[in-house]
Design a protein around this nucleic acid. Structure first.
Length: 821
RNA sequence: GCCGGGGUGGUGAAAUGGCAGACACGAGAGACUUAAAAUCUCUUACCCGUAAGGGUGUGUGGGUUCGAGUCCCACCCUCGGCACCA
């Protein structure tokens, strides 16, 4: 009887004592392999099924690569700054330093129960000063390169968390963390200029990432090619409105111009008569913005300014409107409205009875396109490209050509130019919170904004703080002993920056530090980073596609540009684990459907639990948790144990397939087939089929016995999936070293060859019988053999007993024979 | 609305265009047992049939093909992501 709990304790202790998984980072003999999982947040809750679902298969992958001969580095750490610990402190008075230390210790213990081969000597904890000092250093590097800057900007503000949120942290107008409604607030904030890296971030060359993730990042970055066009303001010499458009080909169809409510020209151009309405609209827009524009649905609103703009292409006067469907944060904050060819402009024009002028028609060679005037007649905008009409000299040009020509010509007069825009906004890194890395800057009355020097790091978080944020200021702002400092330049009185950094800054460089986790002289070792990075395999949730994964790439590129590392991309291969749900719903405390692994682990053991999670389905698909199926894996482990560890092996050294041969070939074929199936499964992250392959082998071997040699093969085969079990059997089989010091079995393709094969026989596409034929049997032989099979033959004769005409004979070697009659 | 996954037995699932449902769970029957648990054996897509056998089946409707879960077109449902980006 296999005693999982005893065996697992034994091996966990032995692994830890022997330092088996402390990777020698200077080993030159084996190729390196950096196997990384996204590090966890050390929450007070226990490790849940989702953690296991992520970490256990990731560890199996690492163990597999290790046995394949790689020197595998598999580190782990804790992403320990952030709101939950601070909110917990506000509620309970327990200091984050204390609660985080407790949580880390607890999670470390739980993580070791999984039986992972983490190299704990390289642990990083982002809230330790020895780490965040270097997060501050990273900030300074960006500052020096001109990539960190301050600006006053309307920001997403969570009234409940009293903090600023990144766009990425706002969902449906709600705060990502507390679900409160997000409002706007004007604050001076620190930003990282990630936009200047937009173009490079769009390039995924050489990255083995899921297509889906690349697409999501591309959409997030949102590159668009267009033109800026300047409209003169009628009656105001020198007054100009610059608009951005991707459809300059529709310029002749522009019937009005729209400014965002926040546009700086609004006050200047509004005519007296319209001032009251405009003011009202803008006030309203601010409030509407506060409540969240999307909550208003898609209904467009706007107000007239009374001013007019002049279309540079034809000198036509068009009214200037203000509407909140134009965003100040994208393009120039002003658009030329072409209702005939833009859905939003069309809806707006209909509502306010503005003219609709068609200037693009479907190309003649596209009969599928709308018929007459592009669709305006049908009550909708024609938004596709086509051929220009009513467009002066440009009439008859294709949209594509017209965009080029119109911009080029207007460019000569200096009123237009080509322009590429991105949806991506700069990364807002200021947080008005306590539990984060302080931004390493001071404000001096004489010298202004002064960055600290490296020697002045870390800027330590003060211990004694009132955590509750007040009025949009960080709790640090109220700690005089922290705030008051001397200017490093002039020595005069100065104030520290009171904001801390977004925790995404912490996690955007941690993978660089792991190889030199204890390093005191720098954030990371250039030498070790160049040796060990990029990360060969990065495993984590798809929810990080547009945040963490984008930020990490950005920071890594900056480090590259500064000459600290010689690779641009940090993660070569990326795999996302699927979501484990319970009754179809995401597990969450509020729903009360969180499944705790602990009871299952103590009942069945961690190997069984790990394999059950892997057996549920493909790793990337996730699945719905059910308590039931685990018994199947548990039975399998018992049978595997009984079969392998039982020394009274049946005398035969062969594992038969029911047609046992004297040569033993049949058994070898099953062994090799199993090896192939397991390897294929692991490589594809479909561990379920790998485990199924092992089950098939055991089911067969139970009947006929298994040789010592094959026992050793199977034990090595299962080792990455059930590490404790494999070690124990390995020892039982008389091996002295760890099974993970052995190599992974390989298969011989020649051994997979069958001598005979069962072939399906189809008549008119329907299977009517089968026949066993030698492999590589000729067409004639196969057809002859197929014809005489009774269940087939009767379909080849008519009612009168005469042979029917066979119109076609098909032979797919070693697969099937087909007759068409 | 747009972009991307995904729809296969009672359940989780498997299947280079070639015998759909491997491997498991559950269920049913049996063996062992004083009994139960555990274990082992057999059955288990659906319909008709005592059976032999036949028919129908991979979200729906079309198409390509000797042959489609797999490829193409249209649609429905579902899960994720984005959402006035000019």
């Amino acid at each position: 009887m296999y005693n999982a709990s005893h065996v697992e304790h034994k091996w966990q202790k032995r692994w830890a004592d022997s330092g088996l998984y402390t990777t020698s980072l200077h080993d030159e003999k084996r190729p390196k392999y950096y196997n990384l999982v996204m590090f966890p947040y050390p929450s007070g809750d226990k490790l849940h099924v989702g953690h296991w679902y992520n970490y256990a298969p990731a560890d199996s992958w690492g163990r597999y690569m290790r046995m394949k001969g790689f020197n595998v580095f598999e580190p782990i750490g804790f992403d320990s700054f952030g709101l939950p610990a601070e909110n917990y402190a506000i509620k309970t008075g327990i200091h984050p330093t204390v609660s985080i230390a407790q949580n880390c210790a607890k999670m470390e213990e739980q993580l070791s129960l999984i039986g992972t081969m983490y190299d704990w000597s390289k642990k990083v904890v982002t809230s330790d000063p020895e780490y965040y000092q270097w997060t501050q250093w990273v900030f300074l590097q960006l500052y020096k390169k001109g990539l960190a800057y301050r600006k006053r900007a309307p920001v997403n503000w969570c009234p409940s968390c009293q903090t600023v949120l990144a766009n990425e942290q706002v969902n449906n107008g709600e705060c990502d963390r507390c679900k409160s409604e997000v409002t706007k607030k004007e604050l001076t904030q620190w930003f990282f200029n990630i936009r200047s890296y937009a173009e490079r971030l769009l390039n995924f060359d050489g990255l083995d990432w899921p297509e889906k993730t690349k697409l999501m990042q591309q959409h997030w970055i949102g590159r668009s090619e267009g033109s800026t066009v300047q409209f003169e303001i009628f009656g105001r010499s020198g007054g100009k409105i610059e608009v951005y458009t991707t459809r300059v080909d529709t310029l002749f169809g522009c019937t009005y111009v729209v400014l965002a409510p926040e546009h700086p020209l609004v006050g200047e151009i509004t005519e007296k008569l319209f001032e009251k309405d405009v003011k009202e609209y803008i006030d309203n827009a601010k409030r509407v913005t506060d409540i969240n524009r999307s909550a208003e649905g898609r209904d467009k609103t706007g107000v007239e300014t009374g001013a007019y703009a002049v279309n540079p292409v034809n000198g036509k006067r068009v009214p200037i409107w203000i509407a909140d469907y134009v965003l100040m944060t994208y393009g120039t904050g002003a658009v030329m409205a072409v209702p005939a060819h833009d859905e939003r402009d069309f809806a707006f024009a209909k509502k306010y009875e503005l003219p609709v002028v068609t200037v693009v028609k479907p190309p003649r060679d596209n009969p599928a396109g709308p018929p007459t005037d592009g669709g305006v007649a049908k009550g909708e905008a024609y938004i596709d490209d086509g051929v220009l009409v009513s467009s002066g000299d440009y009439t008859g040009l294709s949209s594509e050509m017209a965009r080029k020509k119109i911009t080029e010509l207007l460019k000569l007069d200096g009123v237009a130019d080509f322009q590429v825009n991105y949806k991506l906004r700069d990364w807002l890194v200021s947080r008005q919170r306590y539990w984060g890395a302080p931004i390493p800057l001071i404000y001096c009355e004489k010298c202004g904004e002064v960055p600290l020097s490296e020697e002045q790091l870390p800027v330590l978080l003060p211990e004694d703080v009132e955590f509750r944020p007040k009025g949009g200021k960080s709790p640090l702002a109220f700690v005089d002993s922290f705030m008051a400092t001397k200017c490093p330049t002039c020595g005069g009185d100065a104030q520290r920056e009171s904001d801390t950094m977004d925790t995404f800054v912490d996690s955007s460089w941690y993978f660089l530090r792991y190889p030199a986790a204890r390093m005191k002289e720098g954030a990371f070792s250039t030498e070790l980073a160049n040796k060990w990075l990029p990360v060969d395999m990065y495993i984590g949730g798809p929810e990080h596609a547009c945040m963490h994964l984008l930020y990490a790439r950005f920071i890594n590129m900056v480090m590259h540009d500064l000459g600290f590392v010689d690779f641009e991309e940090p993660f070569t291969r990326l795999v996302h684990q699927g979501l484990v749900t319970k009754d179809g719903a995401k597990m969450s405390k509020s729903k009360g459907n969180v499944v705790s692994p602990d009871a299952f682990v103590s009942q069945y053991g961690s190997d069984v639990f790990r394999m059950y999670l892997m057996f549920m389905g493909p790793f990337e698909a996730g699945g719905d948790w059910s308590d039931q199926g685990i018994t199947g894996v548990s039975r399998f482990v018992d049978r595997f144990w009984n079969l392998m560890a039982d020394r009274t092996t049946k005398g035969s050294s062969d594992v038969g397939t029911g047609e046992k041969t004297n040569t033993g070939l049949a058994s070898a074929r099953l062994v090799h087939k199993t090896i192939k199936k397991v390897i294929d499964g692991i490589e594809a992250f479909t561990f379920n089929t790998a485990i199924a392959g092992l089950m098939e082998f055991v089911n067969e071997a139970m009947k006929v016995g298994v040789s010592m040699e094959d026992k050793k093969i199977m034990t090595r085969l299962i080792a990455p999936l059930a590490p404790h079990l494999a070690e124990e059997i390995w020892e039982h089989l008389g091996e002295k070293e760890s099974v993970f010091a052995s190599s992974y079995p390989t298969f011989d393709p020649a051994m997979l060859m069958e001598t005979s094969v069962e072939i399906a026989i189809q008549v008119n596409g329907k299977v009517r019988g089968t026949v066993v034929l030698p492999v590589g049997c000729s067409r004639d032989e196969a057809l002859r053999a197929a014809r005489v099979i009774e269940s087939v033959a009767r379909y080849l004769v008519g009612a009168d007993g005469a042979a029917v005409t066979v119109k076609k004979e098909i032979y797919v070697p070693d697969k099937l024979v087909g007759f068409v009659v």
